[in-house]
Amino acid sequence: MAQSSDLQGALKPFYQRASEAEDRLARLEAALASKKDAGNEELLKMVSELQSKLEGAQAEREKALKEVQKISVENAKLQYRITHLVRALEEADCKLASK
Rank of each mutant, 00 (worst) to 15 (best):
R27T: 08
E91C: 01
T83W: 01
S72K: 11
A21C: 10
R87W: 01
K63C: 05
I71M: 12
E90Y: 03
K95G: 01
Q51E: 06
S48I: 01
R81Y: 15
L44G: 07
F14T: 14
E74V: 05
L78W: 05
E90G: 06
T83A: 02
K95M: 04
Q16L: 14
R27G: 13
G56H: 00
P13Q: 15
Q8F: 14
E20I: 06
V47Y: 04
V86T: 09
A88F: 02
A92C: 02
G39H: 10
G9Y: 09
S19R: 10
L78D: 11
R24Y: 07
G56E: 01
K63V: 03
Q51R: 06
K66W: 03
K77R: 14
A2V: 15
D37P: 00
R27V: 10
A57L: 05
E41T: 05
T83S: 08
V47W: 05
A31F: 06
L28M: 14
E60N: 07
E74I: 05
M46L: 10
I71A: 15
E42A: 10
K53A: 00
S19N: 09
S34N: 10
S98H: 03
K53G: 00
E20C: 15
R17S: 13
I71Q: 09
L54S: 06
Y15L: 05
